[in-house]
């Protein structure tokens, strides 16, 4: 076993495996890119070849377009690239999201990408993978982030929708178009009323359905006759950038809600001036982050995007060998110009 871990290094283009001559989620164009999942801070345009888990084939194709050179690998099945063994394991973040295990000479590194441990009907659950070095995200790496049971959250969303129906307001639920939107759709009670979607969401719904994920019936808002539709009885799922412009004008009186981990904190919730904030994240909370690190039995922990310095300091106090790794991933952002959830 190598004394130091040099299987992966950080370079200006991204995490690089020199022995295998490939990058993981590179942020500049490269020859060979391994992709953890299809969010745009992890799957960027311009590389020559991409490899991802086959569960993510449909959504990555939608994201990258027809011209990108994509290959797919079944989950759990090792693949050898220039003498380096690469295996994809489910990460539970969104459909097709995977951790990537990289092994050579008995040393292994796992790149988590983004992940969560909470149940999600639209993707395969996270599997802890034993490794020597675990590279983890830390989007919500503070002990104030502790997720409520998603079932309770969905019950709250259903109640909100019903009460909007009674007061004649259109329910607009803001969620990122890839992942969060579909998790919402699969989680709400579709018997309450009709569900309409923004075009960006509907495009990815097609990918989810093609991959065999069960979603309730949805109709693109643009395909409806605005005057003949009972908007105030419906639920509209749209990306955050959709409100505030002319797109949402047709719905009349609105109640706007957002589902995000950031909604845990009152100040953030109030600053967005939304009617409701539901706490639902596709990232691990504090307890699950620490539990996962223990379960990987890693000797070294590299912490990337999020509260990496806080998490590293805490891990070191607990006796872990941990360090911060600077990346250009953004995690779950509330800003409109950053899209991934």
């Amino acid at each position: 076993m190598p004394a130091a871990n040099n299987l992966l290094t950080t370079t200006p283009r991204g995490l690089f495996c020199e022995a295998g001559n490939f990058y993981v989620d590179p942020w500049r164009p490269v020859d060979h890119a391994l992709i953890t999942h299809a969010h745009s801070d992890h799957a960027r345009w311009g590389s020559k070849k991409y490899l991802t888990a086959d569960t993510g084939a449909e959504v990555l194709r939608i994201r990258m377009g027809d011209k990108a050179n994509l290959s797919f690998q079944p989950l759990g099945r090792p693949l050898t690239i220039n003498g380096v063994t690469v295996t994809f394991f489910p990460a539970g973040h969104i459909l097709g999201s995977a951790q990537i295990k990289i092994e050579k000479d008995g040393y292994s590194v796992v790149v988590s990408g983004d992940y969560k441990r909470n149940p999600d009907a639209t993707c395969r659950p996270f599997e802890p993978v034993r490794c020597h070095t675990f590279i983890t995200e830390s989007t919500f790496g503070l002990p104030i982030y502790r997720w409520p049971d998603p079932q309770t959250v969905f019950a709250g969303i259903n109640d909100w929708w019903r009460s909007n129906q009674q007061s004649g307001k259109t329910s607009v639920l803001l969620a990122y178009s890839l992942g969060k939107a579909q998790r919402m759709l699969a989680g709400v009670d579709a018997t309450i009323g009709s569900i309409y979607t923004h075009g960006a969401v509907e495009k990815l719904n097609a990918g989810y359905r093609a991959a065999g994920v069960a979603l309730p019936k949805t109709t693109r808002v643009g395909d409806l006759d605005a005057k003949a539709t009972d908007w105030n009885q419906s639920l509209i799922v749209a990306p955050p950038s959709a409100v505030g412009g002319t797109w949402a004008k047709r719905f009349g009186k609105l109640s706007v809600a957002m589902a995000s981990g950031w909604m845990q904190v009152r100040g953030t919730r109030r600053r967005r001036a939304m009617d409701r904030g539901f706490i639902l994240s596709d990232h691990v909370d504090w307890d699950d982050l620490l539990r996962t690190i223990v379960e990987t039995e890693a000797e070294q922990v590299w912490v990337t995007h999020g509260y990496s310095d806080v998490v590293v300091r805490h891990l070191r106090e607990q006796g872990w060998d941990a360090k911060v790794v600077e990346t250009e991933f953004t995690g779950e952002s509330l800003e409109e110009d950053a899209e991934p959830a």
Partner: peptide, 19 residues
């Protein structure tokens, strides 16, 4: 770590309730 959280939340009662 408590102070880091307080810094993010900006309200003592809320920080305590969350942590």
């Amino acid at each position: 770590l408590f102070e880091e959280c307080y810094d993010r939340v900006g309200d003592l009662a809320e920080t305590i309730s969350l942590i």
